[in-house]
Simulated assay, not measured.
Amino acid sequence: MSEVDDAIAAARASWSRIAGDAEPVPARRAARRNQPLGRRLKRIAIADAAILAAAMVIGMILPTGIGIMGAVAVMALLIAATVVFAVWPAENAAPPRPEKLREVDLRALPAQTERWLQAQRRALPAPAQHLVDRIGDRLDTLSPQLGRIEPEGEQALEIRRLVGEQLPAFVADYARVPEPLRRVERNGRTPDGALVDGLGVIEREIAGMTERLAQGDLDSLQTRGRFLEMKYQNDR
């Protein structure tokens, strides 16, 4: 029974990753955008705690404590540390360059593409920003599946073409359009509209890739389910 249970659990997990991402998860989306802020706040907290701890130790050692001047110095250090770490660039803050995405390990490709895409987010119109968030969620769902496929196989090449090449190239093409022309209709569609339509196609295709990769688990779930019904329900 353990093998049956394991197969069913794996299939349900795969399906929940697909179906559960039909809508973007606000908490996950906010966490992605707030990662640099979180790192800065953590640095500030650590630096301020170290300054206060050092001041306490010095105050215990000195017979007269740190005094008024020492307290002023501590306050100045706290302010300086807060300002410095508030503006200090977060580690690994620079997104990867689009041409580098073609060389990234397949399992790391969704995360790296998502970092690059999030860096472009503010320059995109609001409907496209919404789709960027959805694509980010789709990439989160796709990523765990990639360790199960052949890195040089046809599935891997298809994912590389879409996620590592076509998606960045498409957004980069839009970014090169002069801002005043992005809302000017051309051939029945504005560049803003073309961007939104194209991102929608990419989002749906990534979802389809994830479902195809999970097809074996989904088939296994159905097969095992029928086996359980035949073996245990029909035996009663």
Rank of each mutant, 00 (worst) to 15 (best):
I58F: 01
A19C: 04
V104R: 12
L109H: 06
M209E: 06
A93M: 10
L195N: 04
P180G: 04
L41E: 05
F170G: 03
E185I: 11
R102P: 00
L62N: 09
A7D: 11
L228K: 09
P24S: 12
V87D: 06
Q233F: 03
A119S: 14
L109T: 07
M56R: 10
A123T: 03
G20H: 03
A94L: 09
A169L: 06
R148K: 14
I135K: 03
P125Q: 12
L106N: 06
F170L: 09
Q215G: 05
E185T: 14
L181Y: 05
T210I: 04
E103M: 13
R160I: 08
G198R: 08
Q233T: 09
F227C: 01
R161G: 10
A7V: 15
G65M: 09
R138S: 06
N234Q: 13
R115F: 00
G67I: 10
V84F: 14
E211A: 15
I46Q: 12
P63A: 13
R204L: 12
E23N: 07
L78F: 00
G65T: 08
A207Q: 07
R226P: 00
Q35M: 10
P110S: 06
A175S: 11
P127N: 08
G193S: 07
P26N: 10
D137E: 08
A45F: 01
R138A: 11
N34A: 14
L181E: 12
F170S: 04
G164S: 02
G193I: 01
E154K: 11
G200Q: 11
I68W: 07
D133S: 12
D105M: 11
G38C: 02
